Amino acid sequence: MFRCPRLPQVLACSLFGLLASVAHAATPSPAPETLQPLLNTINERLDIADLVALAKWDSGKPIQDTARETLLINNARKQATGSNVNPDEAADLIAAQIEANKLVQYGLIAQWQAAHKAPDLPRPDLTQLRAKQDELQARLLQQYAAFVPYRVDPECPQWLAAQRSDLIKDALHGQALIRATGELCITDL
């Protein structure tokens, strides 16, 4: 009968090498430094949605504001050229932010309607909030421009999920943050 005493050792070394390469492939590379500032700005914009909801609760204004949304998207297209961003991508990014903000507003107002009251907090001025949103939009587009080269990286969804999870404060804002960042990574080339 044929025996090869070294065969188990060769197999063990091969298996160890295979496992090491799989473990290395499963360890994602660190996220680019441009991602966290972008996510922080998106999250800051979502925090403003809470205040906008309060202002709209008090004023009775509807959440949907088509004229304001159109203005923001058109401004994003104009700002995109100065930020070296594709105008259509800038419009999509800002549209996602608007939808995420409305998600928060609808959710909070529904909670307040069920409770028959809004929180007892200082009431914001909607005009000042909009000025802050405009400032954030300019910063958001600059940060997005810095992140664009990483959008197609195969590890982008893992980076996004890991860094986004640290920002989630509750289910409503978590869903809104997912909506706001849903198209940051391009996975279907």
Rank of each mutant, 00 (worst) to 15 (best):
R179W: 01
A118S: 12
R6L: 13
P157H: 08
A131L: 14
L167C: 05
N86L: 13
L184K: 09
A90D: 00
T127P: 02
G107W: 10
D92F: 04
L140D: 13
Q79F: 09
F16H: 00
P157Q: 08
A95P: 07
A90S: 03
K56E: 14
S21E: 11
Q9E: 07
D88P: 06
L19R: 00
A100L: 08
T70R: 00
A80Y: 04
G82W: 08
C4M: 05
G60Y: 04
S21W: 13
D166W: 11
A23R: 05
Q9G: 00
T27P: 07
A118E: 07
L103G: 01
D120R: 09
K117P: 12
A114D: 09
L121H: 13
P157Y: 10
T187W: 11
R139W: 11
S83K: 00
G174H: 04
T181Q: 02
I94P: 02
R164L: 14
A114C: 06
A114I: 06
L51P: 05
P149R: 01
D170V: 00
Y144K: 04
T27G: 05
V85N: 01
G17F: 15
A95S: 14
G107D: 07
D188T: 09
T66N: 09
I94K: 03
L15Q: 12
L71Q: 06
A131I: 14
P8Y: 07
I48F: 14
L38R: 00
S21I: 10
Q175A: 05
L54W: 04
M1W: 13
Q105D: 05
A118K: 07
A25P: 05
N43I: 00
K61D: 15
S14G: 15
C4L: 09
Q111H: 01
D92C: 05
Q137E: 04
P30K: 08
